[in-house]
Design a protein around this nucleic acid. Structure first.
Lengths: 350, 350
DNA sequence: CAGCCTTTTTGAATCGATTCATAAAACGAC
DNA sequence: GTCGTTTTATGAATCGATTCAAAAAGGCTG
């Protein structure tokens, strides 16, 4: 009613396909064809239409396109901690693979809260995303099941699917824990501690199980579990302070941290506040091998996960399932790799 | 054509507002009212409709809603480096503020590439986002101008608007550089080096200008600019190796890094490979005060920016401009704060 | 140039939620 | 029970791109 009468410039984002059709002197169907299958339109017509598009500054309205298509070309990604470089790297891998298929990835952060996770899934559902990638914290089995049967596939990331009916891409965390522990045990350490949490997280359970499993093969080896609230830097610091509060004789000889953030936090406090030598007084192995791991002043030995490959693979599976919902769920499990640095073997490791 | 004939369950995400209306025995308009203004609908009717919604597992189709509304409730955020904790923190602040208004934030990464940045803006334009937050790398002035006049406001983040016509939220980077340099100068260091790049980035220019400006007040103070390709960890390492290759007498006595990633990378190499003492042989000040800064084995002195506040403020301005496009552009500039840690004053800093 | 086949173009119908002028129902007062 | 008022409910029109059956335009042959 009160639209500015002067300044009648249409402006970009304002023109619709109908305006383009009119200016080009063709029908809307033809404009749509130029946009989507230019090969079936005569060359001269394509040119006319493109000229009109340029002149009007036409930009396709994706909401309308989606409405008609019934589905968007966006993939939703819900991670446990968007600030953890592990997940930003997974996201990067996912984005690259998605982009190659003309898709986009939107990342949301659950911050290890089931409520926030559920809210993000709600949001993605209203968006009718092409599919979901989730590093789950809450119990989403049923929910994802229902979504899947409604045409929205989901792939679990960094976690092996519990229910048989969902695909997943993960790394063998039991093996990862085993690799870390065995390395320390072979270096002669016997009293190990595993630092991480919350204990309910599947990744934590598996890694700890691997550590325990490795210890069984070594006489006199013990494993202590030190639970943390989360997996941040600060959690590692707090755990380290707790250790420093003990008598030196009561401390473990080596730590396996549930991820690199925790490891680096612990490393900092043990050296900086406790004046311990790493690895002499305490060897430390991290998990994920994020960029910062090699950058700690005592470079961190860490269990490497193929971070970008995880994201890439998850998107590949998701695309296939989106195309053919009848596909059998797949569970891809990568093998972790131990990267040895100075936090376990000191300088001699080059 | 080949839809499974059995299992005819409608499934969630399949029911439309029309189905709900039919089941509840009301009109579509009423269902829409229940969804959007339940207060104008009689309580009994609300209940009937909600029951139908639950029974059908109805989920609103946002594409349809957006199409009608002409605009989405999503804010697009384009950052220079999604893996830099500075930006994830800005994003966090933006998300929190957006959520309070029922909006979402989608983050995209330009990786300091103008092409990628343009592609992301294209994408957000087809999405008819409510507005854009951009930490710009390319020259977007004209483009954003046009978008604004088409009803899509944009707020520059971490950069003071060059053109008068866009709002921006930033930190006084000249002052930040000045703070860092003055601190080092007051500690007695005279030969300073500024490490960062690319030189074209406004933030880099300003911070360097601040460093130079501070040096003018001190007799015999010199400032050397060491340009890096980007602002990552690796860039800092490379710069440090270049310094180590020099004769010790030719090296600066202190570094001001353009951000913490660069500072930490440099710190690591100077100590680990060069066996220099920090701060004795080389004092270092970082920029951003990311969480890792305090976690480096030599905790890093750094120029703190109010990261989350920047994001929050940018969203606030964006929302206001989206509401009233006639508003005058605003340029908010926060003051940076120097956080002193061991990388400049050694242990005595507590 | 008629007849047939191929290539292009057309435009109404559609997706699902929202809006709003209008109709219906409920309520109160007398 | 009637009339006037307020509260609720209705449903056609709309947003913009896509689809697809049908029509039109081009090509080719004899």
């Amino acid at each position: 009613m009160n639209r500015a009468p002067h300044s009648s410039a249409p402006g970009p984002g304002t023109a619709s396909i109908r305006d383009v059709a009119e200016l080009a002197g063709v029908s809307v169907g033809t404009v749509s064809n130029v946009l989507n299958r230019p090969d079936i339109v005569r060359a001269g017509t394509v040119e006319k239409v493109n000229a009109a598009i340029r002149e009007l500054g036409f930009v396709r309205n994706d909401a309308a396109r989606q409405l008609r298509a019934g589905r968007s070309t966006t993939i939703g990604l819900v991670v446990l901690d968007a600030r953890n470089p592990f997940f930003t790297d997974v996201a990067r891998g996912a984005e690259d693979e998605a982009a190659r298929g003309g898709l986009s990835v939107v990342m949301a952060n659950s911050d290890e809260s089931p409520e926030r996770e559920a809210a993000h899934v709600d949001y993605f559902e209203t968006q009718r995303v092409l599919g979901l990638l989730i590093s789950p914290i809450g119990d989403l089995g049923e929910r994802l099941e229902r979504l899947r049967s409604a045409g929205t596939p989901a792939v679990l990331v960094d976690r092996i699917s519990g229910t048989r009916s969902l695909s997943s891409v993960a790394v063998d965390d039991v093996e990862g824990g085993r690799l870390a522990a065995r390395h320390l045990l072979e270096l002669g350490r016997r009293r190990l501690a595993f630092v991480g949490g919350p204990a309910g997280l599947a990744q934590i359970q598996d890694r700890l199980a691997g550590v325990r499993n490795a210890a069984e093969a070594f006489d006199g080896a013990t494993v202590e579990a030190i639970e943390t609230i989360g997996l941040t830097f600060d959690d590692g610091r707090r755990a380290a302070r707790a250790l420093l509060a003990r008598h030196a004789a009561d401390r473990p000889e080596a730590l396996v941290a549930a991820n690199d953030l925790v490891a680096i936090g612990a490393l900092q406090v043990l050296m900086g506040e406790g004046h311990l030598s790493v690895p002499d007084d305490m060897a430390i192995v991290g998990y994920d091998d994020i960029d910062f791991a090699s950058a700690a002043v005592v470079p961190l030995s860490s269990v490497r996960q193929p971070r970008e490959l995880i994201g890439k693979t998850a998107v590949t599976i998701l695309r296939e399932e989106a195309e053919d919902p009848a596909l059998e769920p797949r569970n891809v499990v990568f093998k972790p790799e131990l990267i040895v640095r100075a936090s376990t073997v000191g300088r001699q490791a080059g």
